[in-house]
């Protein structure tokens, strides 16, 4: 049985870790790009590297825009949680409110119409909690992601005849439109969702951006090849950080797919920014917490094609 208190504390620690410590895979990617860039674009990347170091040294958030802090929960099929799933949701909401005050995080979450701010990043449907399950496991994996969200994402219904050309055009449209002036806060980990229903398409693209490490490739070799091709295309735009001339638009590009309507090919594009904040913990059945960088959100089971 995993205790409520353990979950709440682990979620609080995740909030802090995500807000303050840049994931190592992304930091390395920015460092490598800073070696290749020149002039303004290079200056921006080097300044961001200084910023990551300052955040970790001072234990202060790397970016004041907390984004929309949210959670991804993967529960082993045999995991037992004190108080059940309702208690788990309460633990995540409580940790979010506590972290907002004590780190502090900016209280970003407001009512969409009345703009009232409860000052704790908790509200109606907030923080979002995505669920998935894993067979033959008794642990609980929690991941938090702090992602901004005003610029850099888009959705379009394409059709099978539009083919890879259509995906490329839509990717270029999104990166060019939001890359100017660096509204997308590139270099980005770009997530491309292909297929599913409209909402699943958005969700898959977002998860592709936020829940896979830089350097990770899709297990389907043809999709992996397309990931490389689209990444290269994004960096050929000639745009770097802040929209200055350069070649650092895309730190990596991940694709996730879902079976879709026979007549359509929905596509979504998402950009995870220069403050790509994510953190993961596994709570084992005994209540011990194991922090790690890789969310391991996608598994053979979660990508299964078969009936079982």
């Amino acid at each position: 049985m995993i205790a409520y208190r353990t979950i709440e504390q682990a979620a609080f620690q995740l909030m802090e870790k995500a807000a303050i410590d840049i994931p190592e895979d992304y930091r390395r990617a920015v460092a490598a790009m800073s070696e290749r860039e020149q002039g303004l674009s290079c200056f921006v990347l080097k300044t961001m590297l200084d910023n990551y170091a300052a955040a970790s040294a001072d234990r202060r958030p790397m970016c004041a825009d907390t984004g929309l802090p949210r959670y991804y929960v993967k529960a082993g099929n045999d995991a037992r949680i004190e108080g059940g799933f309702v208690a788990l949701e309460k633990a995540l909401r409580t940790a979010t409110a506590r972290a907002t005050k004590s780190i502090p995080l900016r209280p970003n979450r407001v009512h969409p119409l009345w703009r009232t701010d409860p000052n704790n990043n908790v509200g109606i449907n907030a923080p979002e909690i995505d669920w998935s399950f894993e067979p033959n496991a008794d642990w609980l994996d929690l991941t938090t992601v702090h992602k901004g969200g005003l610029f850099g994402s888009d959705y379009r219904m394409l059709f099978p005849g539009d083919g890879i050309d259509g995906i490329k055009r839509f990717l270029l449209d999104t990166l060019v439109a939001f890359g100017k002036r660096g509204l997308a806060c590139q270099p980005a980990i770009v997530g491309v969702g292909i297929g599913g229903s409209k909402d699943a398409c958005m969700m898959l693209g977002k998860q592709a951006a936020c829940l896979r490490l830089v350097g990770d490739r899709h297990p389907d070799p043809k999709i992996a090849e397309l990931e490389g091709e689209l990444m290269e295309l994004g960096n050929r735009i000639g745009m770097g950080a802040m929209g200055f001339a350069g070649r650092s638009m895309v730190a990596d590009l991940h694709i996730e797919v879902g079976h879709t309507h026979t007549g359509g090919m929905p596509v979504s594009v998402h950009t995870f920014c220069l403050s790509s904040r994510r953190a993961t913990v596994r709570i084992d059945a005994g209540g011990a917490r194991h922090f790690r960088d890789d969310p391991k959100w996608f598994s053979d089971y979660s990508r299964r094609e078969t009936v079982e």
Partner: peptide, 28 residues
């Protein structure tokens, strides 16, 4: 720069001299 040099800029703030309309407008 960046955008999002939150920690570097945070270091540059010596003191909050004042805050106005915190109640009415909220923190942000």
């Amino acid at each position: 720069v960046g955008y999002g040099t939150g920690a570097l800029l945070g270091r540059g703030i010596r003191r909050v001299r004042d805050v106005f309309w915190l109640e009415e407008l909220g923190n942000a």
